[in-house]
Design a protein around this nucleic acid. Structure first.
Length: 598
RNA sequence: GCGGGUGUAGCUCAGUUGGUUAGAGUAUCGGCCUGUCACGCCGAGGGUCGCGGGUUCGAGUCCCGUCACUCGCGCCA
C-alpha cells in the first residue's frame, strides 16, 4: 500500500464498504464523545469522517490532537446506518473506522480557525496565508484562478496564438508608471527594470515575424495599491501582426466571452461578437467615466444650454464661466424623503466635490431650490427633453467639464446603488474606443500624449500634419466589464516617420526619440509589420468570476496595501555584504522633514 | 501626500449618560460523556481596552496627538 494514502478524502463511497484503506489529511473537526470519537479528515479533494472507539488505538491519539494536525489513518470503510448518513457530505454514506494512526504533523493552537469562515483581519490572514488558503472559499478561488488561466491559454492556442516568454530583468519600458529597479552586480551603478508589461518585447516579436503572440505575463508597477491593483499582477498579453482594430476585437471577444461563460456559474455574459463599442467622448458624457458599468441603466445628459440663462444663479454663473451642467436621473423617487436627496449631497461633499444639486418631482410637482428658481415651465421643458416622468427626481453636477463629468459619473453609481438599479447576475462587456491621441497638460502648459505614445493615430501622417492635435484620435481601446477596466490595447505605430512626427507634436525632437527608443526605432526601420494587441488583467478577470471585490482574494500570496508580504517579511533590509557587492549604500532620510524640503 | 472607516481576550464581537472587579461566543487547558457531523455538559486560565498625552474625584467611553490595518483621492492603463 502507498506510504500515505490509498484514496483521497473525497473518493470513498458505499461501493468501498468492507475495504481496508489508508487516508491522509488534516484534522478538520473533532467530536469527542468519550468512548467514541469522530474526526472530519480533510484534504484538497474533500472530507471523510473517521471514527474511533475504545477498540481503536487511534482514540487516545485523537483525544490530545488539535485541529489542523496532519495524520495518516489505516482503517476499514464502513456503511453508516441510515439515520447517521450525512446527506451534506459527498462521502456521507460511509465512514472509516481507524485501525491505526500516524501523526505526521501535530498542530499548535491556531491564530485563525480554518473551519467556518467569518471575516478576519487581513493582517492575520496574510501573515498566516497558508492557513487562510486552507479555508474552503480561498481554496476554491485559487483553484478557479488556475482553471481560468488554463482556459484562456487553451482558447488562445486554439486560435493559433503562440506562447512566448520574455525577460523579467529588462530595461525601463515606456509605460507611465514608476519602475521597480534591480541593481546589477556586474555593472555597478546600473539597474535592470522589472517589466511594467512586456510591451517592447511583444512588438519586437511581431517585427521578428511571429505573427500571433501571447503570454500569461507578470507585470510590475511601483505605484500605490488599491483593492483591484497590486504591485505585481498578471496579464493575458497578446499581439497580432497585419491586423486592424476590428481584427483584435474579433480575436479577444470569443476568448473573454467564452471564458466568462465557462466560469460564470449561470450569470449572463455579453455574447462574443456583440460587445458594444463606445467612443471615449461618449463614455465620458453618458457615464462620466472611461470604464462604465453597463449594468447600471442610468444615463447622464448634458443640459448646459438650459442654464445659460436661468433664475438659478449658481448654474448661470458656472455656464457663463465656460463650465457645464450634467444631470443624472433618479427614477421613481417620489416616495423618497428629503433626507435621501440631502444624503446624496452630503455624500458628494464627503467625496471632495462642491455638492450635488437636485430637483424632486412628485406627481408632476417639482420641488427643491433649483426647480424653484429655474421655474416650473422650463423644468417641464427640460424633463420632456430628457424623457423623464412625473415621479422622477434629477441630480445636477455642475462645474468645469472634467470635474462635472467625474462627479456625474460617481453620482450615477451612487444613485443606482441606493435605488438598487444595478442589474444583478450578469457580466456586461464593452469596448471604449477612439481615445484622444494628445491632451493639453495644464501643469506643463503644453500638448502631451494622453495615453501611450506608441499607438497609431487615426488618419496616420495626414492627421498629424493637418489636424488640431487635440482633435486627433488614436487606434487605442480599453475593454471594460462591470465597471472594471480589464485591459487597454492599441494598434501600434510601426512607422518611424509617423513616430517622429507624433513626438514632435508633443515637443520631442527626432534626437530624443532616437536616444530613448533606439531599439524600437531601429527595428521599425528594418521592416516592421502593422500590428496591435491588448492585455486583459488576469487577476481582475478571476476576481469578477469569483464574485470578490479585491484581487487579493484570488492571489495565493498577495501583498498588503503597503506592498508588504507579511508571511515572507518582504521587503526587507539587505545585508552589508550584499550592498557592498552591488556598490550601493543606503542613505537614511530624517523622519521629520524640515519645512521647505522635498 | 490627502480624506473616510476600523482598532476591547489567540479569533469574532458586546460594553448604555463618564461610575463597582471590562463581558459573551469561539479557541486553549482540565473533567464527564459510545453516534456525532457547528456534538453536548461542568470548570479553569487568558486583557498595556492600539500607543502617548489631556479633561475629570473617576476615562474602554470625552478631547488632542500618534501608530497600524483598510477603502478611496492623488498616482497608476
Amino acid at each position: 500500500m502507498h506510504a500515505y494514502r490509498s484514496h483521497t478524502c473525497a473518493q470513498l463511497s458505499a461501493e468501498n464498504v468492507g475495504e481496508t484503506v489508508r487516508l491522509s489529511g488534516w484534522v478538520h473537526r473533532k467530536r469527542d464523545h468519550g468512548g467514541v470519537l469522530f474526526v472530519d479528515l480533510r484534504d484538497h479533494y474533500g472530507i471523510t469522517q473517521i471514527v474511533a472507539d475504545e477498540d481503536s488505538p487511534a482514540l487516545e491519539v485523537f483525544e490530545r490532537l488539535r485541529a489542523e494536525s496532519v495524520v495518516t489513518i489505516d482503517g476499514d470503510v464502513k456503511a453508516r446506518t441510515p439515520e447517521t448518513v450525512n446527506a451534506n457530505l459527498p462521502t456521507g454514506e460511509i465512514e472509516v473506522f481507524a485501525r491505526s494512526i500516524t501523526v505526521q504533523s501535530a498542530a499548535e493552537e491556531l491564530p485563525l480557525p480554518v473551519f467556518e469562515e467569518p471575516e478576519y483581519p487581513e493582517e492575520i490572514r496574510l501573515k498566516y496565508r497558508f492557513l487562510d488558503l486552507r479555508r474552503e472559499t480561498m481554496h476554491r478561488n485559487i483553484m478557479l484562478r488556475s482553471q481560468v488561466i488554463t482556459s484562456l491559454r487553451r482558447r488562445m492556442t486554439d486560435q493559433g496564438f503562440t506562447e512566448f516568454q520574455t525577460p523579467i530583468l529588462t530595461a525601463s519600458s515606456p509605460e507611465g508608471a514608476r519602475d521597480f529597479l534591480v541593481p546589477s552586480r556586474m555593472h555597478p551603478g546600473n539597474f535592470y527594470a522589472l517589466p511594467q508589461a512586456p510591451q517592447m518585447f511583444k512588438q519586437m516579436l511581431m517585427v521578428s515575424g511571429f505573427d500571433k503572440y501571447f503570454q500569461i505575463a507578470p507585470c510590475f508597477r511601483d505605484e500605490d495599491l488599491r483593492a483591484d491593483r497590486s504591485l505585481e499582477f498578471y496579464q493575458l498579453d497578446f499581439e497580432m501582426s497585419f491586423v486592424t482594430q476590428e481584427d483584435v476585437f474579433q480575436a479577444l471577444e470569443p476568448v473573454l466571452a467564452g471564458t466568462f461563460e465557462e466560469f460564470s456559474g449561470g450569470k449572463s455574459v455579453t455574447p462574443s461578437g456583440s460587445f458594444p463599442r463606445i467612443p471615449y467622448a461618449e463614455a465620458m458624457l453618458k457615464y462620466g467615466t472611461d470604464k462604465p458599468d453597463l449594468r447600471n441603466p442610468l444615463i447622464i445628459s448634458d443640459v448646459t444650454g438650459h442654464f445659460a440663462q436661468s433664475g438659478f444663479g449658481l448654474f448661470e454663473k458656472i455656464v457663463g464661466g465656460g463650465g457645464v451642467v450634467r444631470v443624472i436621473p433618479a427614477p421613481k423617487t417620489n416616495e423618497k424623503s428629503r433626507k435621501f436627496f440631502d444624503d446624496m449631497n452630503n455624500w458628494a461633499r464627503s467625496e471632495g466635490f462642491a455638492g450635488l444639486g437636485y430637483v424632486t418631482r412628485k406627481g408632476g410637482e417639482f420641488g427643491g431650490p433649483i426647480a424653484k428658481n429655474h421655474g416650473p415651465e422650463r423644468m417641464e421643458e427640460l424633463y420632456n427633453e430628457l424623457g423623464l416622468g412625473p415621479d422622477d427626481g434629477l441630480f445636477f453636477a455642475a462645474g468645469k467639464e472634467r470635474d462635472a463629468a467625474k462627479l456625474a459619473g460617481a453620482a450615477r453609481t451612487q444613485i443606482a446603488e441606493q435605488l438598487e438599479l444595478i442589474e444583478p447576475d450578469c457580466f456586461k462587456f464593452c469596448w471604449i474606443v477612439d481615445f484622444p491621441m494628445f491632451e493639453y497638460d495644464e501643469e506643463l502648459k503644453k500638448v502631451d500624449f494622453s495615453h501611450n505614445p506608441f499607438s497609431m493615430p487615426q488618419g496616420e501622417m495626414e492627421a498629424l500634419e493637418t489636424m488640431d492635435p487635440l482633435e486627433i484620435k488614436a487606434w487605442q481601446y480599453d475593454i471594460v466589464c462591470n465597471g472594471y477596466e480589464l485591459s487597454s490595447g492599441a494598434i501600434r505605430n510601426h512607422r518611424p516617420d509617423i513616430m517622429y512626427k507624433a513626438f514632435e507634436i508633443a515637443g520631442y525632437s527626432q534626437e530624443d526619440v532616437d536616444t530613448n527608443f533606439s531599439g524600437m526605432i531601429e527595428a521599425f526601420k528594418l521592416g516592421a509589420p502593422p500590428h496591435g494587441g491588448s492585455a486583459p488583467g488576469i487577476d481582475r478577470i478571476v476576481m469578477l468570476l469569483a464574485g470578490e471585490e479585491a484581487i487579493r482574494e484570488v492571489i495565493a500570496f498577495p501583498m498588503n496595501q503597503k506592498g508588504e508580504d507579511l508571511m515572507m517579511g518582504a521587503p526587507s533590509k539587505a545585508d552589508l555584504r550584499q550592498l557592498r557587492e552591488l556598490q550601493l549604500r543606503v542613505v537614511e532620510q530624517p523622519k521629520n522633514k524640515p519645512e521647505g524640503t522635498a
